[in-house]
Design a protein around this nucleic acid. Sequence first.
DNA 1: ACACGGACCTGAAGGC
DNA 2: TGCCTTCAGGTCCGTG
Length: 269
Amino acid sequence: MRRRLATSMVGGRIAAVDLRRPDLRRPFPRRFVERLTGQMVTALERRAKYLLATLSSEETLLMHLGMSGSFRVIRDQADGRKRRNPPSDPHDHVVFHMATGRAVVFNDPRRFGIMELVPAGRLPRHPVLSKLGPEPLSADFDAAVLALACHRKKTSLKAALMDQRVVAGLGNIYASEALHVAGLSPRRLASSLATISGAPRESAHRLVSAIKRVLEDAIARLAAPGHRGAPFLVYDRAGQRCSRSECDGVIRRRVQAGRSTFFCSVCQH
DNA sequence: ACACGGACCTGAAGGC
DNA sequence: TGCCTTCAGGTCCGTG
């Protein structure tokens, strides 16, 4: 999503903002439209599940898609005229009209999304960012770090992977997917990744590799033009056969910490 | 300090 | 057809 939006926004100017309701989960920041209008977008970055658009005003637009949020880009019409009324539905809550003529539309039926404006200097200490664990695809995230973060936890492995302080950016789908690839049961204790002293066991190495592989694959697929809905290995596949070769198990669903977990009880231990 | 359950919203799908 | 319940990719807050 970051890559796709960057193409339309980075280096461009926000010519107008169409704000169609006062709030998502929380009210939009005060003077939201005025603070964005006319700004250049100098960078678009991601931290965990947050998108961070750096503005020429030294403020950063902090965004989260929640459960149901999405962005779409509307290109200007072939004859060069801007669309007066971009195609919209009742859940198109914000439209960024770029000076190029493109429009970036934020749609979010459940309105669990977030849009905030944060002064650049206060970004590192922002409450939602300051407690986040390592980026899963960075070199900082390795078996030693994961084992240390987990060795005193009193929760399941699945819950630990969804804890954004342990590793930042895995959600319910990819937590299940990574555990499947690693061959680890979601019900194991998180602390079983570490020895008594907190050193990583072999399972921690396997899990870190699985997390990185699962996320890299997903990003590669979603970045491909005309991509299809991700073919998950276990997520939302209860009752179907395990896809691992040589495994004749069936995928099961169980609720952990209030969320659905999908796994194969034959090849995940 | 930690872990859990419920709350926040709307819409889709399935049972009756 | 319509009404009910359950479930959905994420945080956040109160409670124990």
